[in-house]
Amino acid sequence: MKSILTINRLNKSFKSDFWKEAHHVLKDLTFDVEEGGLCGFLGPNGAGKTTTIKILLRFISSDSGEIIFSDKLGKNFNEVRKSIGYFPERPYFYPHLKGMEFANYIGSLQGMSPSEINEKTNYWAEKLSIKFALDRKINSYSKGMLQRLGFVVSIIHSPKFLILDEPLSGLDPIGRRDFKRIMVDLSQEGTTVFFSSHIVSDVEEICNNVVVLMEGKTFYQGNIDQLIDENHKGRYELLISKADSSKLNLAVLENRVAGSDLISVTIDANEKDQFLKEIVQKDVDLKSLKALRPTLEEIVYTSQESSQKL
């Protein structure tokens, strides 16, 4: 699969004061985003996600490093910008303009015709449940409505590459569902969606690829399923009735009460066969047995904790 974006050894530092030491936000950050599909850009607050996106869009400069956009997006940065859709973190727009006027503004800058802008804006506004507010002034919009309008104007020109910076923050559950559904739909239609988030479950739910950023470095890049498989330690969870628990030697095992009459027992893969044998021999009523698969969230949190300990 070809890359739509390649970032190579990107470095960025900020100085809060002239005499103070520079704070390194990005440290040799290297990753690429594959063309097509949905790629999550994960990392805790302050990991450098927004800084990376700002460098991508040339709002700020990098200290060193290389950013390469695929030729499919354009030959120069101006052409690339035509093919990109961008949704900033906590979007805020001109308060005295109406929603439709703002969409007209953005559409005109993209070189769209008035009829095309009108058609696309209404289409996406309908999907994002913001059509009713398009003729209202933006200063009367709630935070969620601003997010929805921001999403509409990010995609009205049918971008090939969509960059979303924390698009789901501050949205109600329905808004989150709508946003996720549209992101999936767009990626299925061929748009490469790259979205940053610090909510791991959001990324796990809809993305096939992920770039995990930790303290300005790439912690992991690749397929989410592969990452989970790599971190799958082969543990199993068994549920047995509480009454039978005395028949087994549970002292050596981690156990916890899962319900009023059930006990949950977690065992390692190498203990499984012997444990099952014991269950059969002692005529224990086994209610369920399942392999424990870690979530992306557990993997990321565990990795974050271990990196902090180091």
Partner: peptide, 14 residues
Amino acid sequence: ENRTLYMILSRPVD
């Protein structure tokens, strides 16, 4: 301050 210019400068506008 309001970050409205991000929306504009991410378009093909110098």
